[in-house]
Simulated scan of single mutants.
Amino acid sequence: MHPDDLEKLVTWKMPFGKYKGRLLADLPGHYLNWFARTGFPPGEIGRLLALLQEMDHNGLKPLLNPLRNKQVNS
């Protein structure tokens, strides 16, 4: 994991697919699990989606809330 990956999860938007335009951190678990089953896309977006899926699977998505608040207050 890169140091700024968590911040990217709350600022980057999904660039394609059913949830195009939605913040990565707001993607539903079933969609992340679908990627886990079928394969994550190549490159940085795939790495971030895999990280988010792991966080969601382990109940760690609430760790992103302070970063969300930071973005809102910036």
Rank of each mutant, 00 (worst) to 15 (best):
P62L: 05
D26E: 15
G39K: 01
L67G: 06
D5R: 00
P28C: 09
R22M: 13
L24Q: 01
L24H: 01
G59P: 15
L52S: 14
M14F: 09
E54P: 10
K61L: 14
K70E: 15
L52D: 13
N58W: 05
Q53M: 13
T11P: 11
I45T: 11
P41G: 00
L64C: 06
N58R: 14
A50C: 10
V10K: 02
L27F: 06
V72Q: 12
Q53Y: 13
P3C: 00
A50T: 01
K61Q: 12
R47D: 11
L51V: 11
Y31K: 08
W12M: 13
P3E: 13
K8Y: 02
A50H: 10
P62Q: 05
L24D: 03
E7I: 05
P28H: 02
L67D: 05
K8C: 06
A50I: 00
L49A: 11
Q71I: 09
A50N: 13
E7T: 07
D4I: 01
G43P: 10
A36C: 08
R47F: 01
P66Y: 02
Y31H: 14
L9N: 03
K70R: 14
G59T: 12
K18V: 04
K8M: 10
P28L: 05
P3N: 03
M14L: 11
I45Q: 03
G29I: 01
K18R: 14
D56H: 07
D4R: 02
P3M: 01
N58S: 12
L9V: 04
D4E: 15
F16N: 13
P28A: 05
K13M: 12
L23C: 04
L51I: 11
E44V: 07
G46R: 03
G46E: 09
V10Q: 06
F35S: 08
L63M: 10
N73W: 09
K61H: 07
G29D: 15
N73E: 15
H30C: 05
P3D: 14
D4L: 08
E44T: 09
D26T: 01
L32E: 10
V10Y: 03
D56Q: 06
Y31M: 12
L27G: 06
I45R: 08
R47I: 00
L6V: 00
S74D: 13
R68F: 11
R37P: 10
R37A: 12
L60K: 09
H57R: 12
S74A: 12
T38R: 02
W34F: 07
A25E: 03
A36R: 11
P62H: 08
F35H: 15
P42V: 04
G59M: 10
K61T: 15
H2E: 15
M14V: 05
R37L: 10
P15E: 02
K70S: 13
L9S: 03
W12G: 00
F40Y: 14
F40M: 05
D4T: 08
K18S: 12
G39A: 09
Q53G: 15
K18T: 12
P66C: 03
N33G: 15
H30D: 15
P66G: 08
Q71S: 12
G46Q: 04
V10R: 02
E7C: 03
